[in-house]
Amino acid sequence: MTPLEIVAMVLLTVGGVFCVIGAVGLVRMPDFYTRMHAASVIETLGAGLVLVGLMLLAGFTLASAKLVILGALIFFASPTATHALAKAAHESGLEPATGGEREKGPE
C-alpha cells in the first residue's frame, strides 16, 4: 500500500469507529433527547472522516467533487432534521430526563 492509502485507511477506519460509538450511544442513552446527541456523532465526525478518507483515495476528480457535495448535504440537512425531530418531540410533550434543574435563564 502507498502512504496515501494507509492514511486513507486510517481515516476510514477511525470514521467507522466513531459511527459505531455513535450507534452504541444510540442504544445506551436513557431517553430520546440524549440519544439525539449520540446520533449527531455519527453525522458529524463519523461521516466527515469517512468522506475525507474517500476523497483522499479519489484524488482531484469528479468523484471527489461529488463527495464534497455529499458532505455539504449532510452538513446542512442533518441539523435541520435533528431540530425538526427535537421540536416535534418537545411539542408532543415528551419530557427530557434532566438532572433536577429545568429551564435555567440565560446567564
Partner: peptide, 18 residues
C-alpha cells in the same frame, strides 16, 4: 460526546437551558 458514550458509568447530566 464519544468519550461519554464509551465510559461505562455514562456520565451525563442533561439540562435544558435558554
Amino acid at each position: 460526546v464519544s468519550k461519554i458514550i464509551v465510559d461505562p458509568k455514562l456520565p451525563i447530566s442533561p439540562v435544558l437551558v435558554r
